[in-house]
Amino acid sequence: MNARHIQTTIEDHQVAKLAAFAIALHMIEAVIPSPLPGVKPGIANIITLFVLYQYGFATAAWVSILRVFASNLLLGQFLSPTFALSLGGASLSLGILWLAMRLPKHYFGPVSLSILAAFGHIAGQLIIVRLWLIPHAGISYLIPIFATAALFFGLINGLITARLITSK
């Protein structure tokens, strides 16, 4: 057999391992019922944030995007609207993290980044909903609820991340 060998680096293995953690958390979350579609704890973001602090932005982006693709493949939602929402949320969230990581570290800890990332997630999803799924003002009613959930879960995920980082 003339199989082509793909060279993998230690970094690739690291990304794969971290993404696996994030995928596992995403799977756990998928079975938790939610009162409103879109309101979710987003515990997989703890991994993204942890990786951002420990390995830098590039690794965090890899882990986050891999998580979106793999989780949606596993849940049978690949290329469905849910997948588009997932990808849109993760992309905007990463963009915001890329900016937010430049905030002075002395004043802004992981909790700030986590809350901003959560707002990014919800904003990315709402933009896709508005542009593609429901091109209509009807969903504006839900925005305050989504924002409240983002603040709440962003705070909790941020505290967990802060704990993970300091305990290491």
Binding site: Y107, F108, G109, V111, L151, R163, T166
Partner: peptide
């Protein structure tokens, strides 16, 4: 208390501004 342990000044400000925004 995890709140006082992990939150910095900017974090408090951000939370406050988020609440006002919401």
């Amino acid at each position: 208390n995890p709140l006082t342990r992990y939150l910095r000044l900017g974090d408090y400000l951000l939370i406050l501004m988020s609440i006002i925004g919401i």
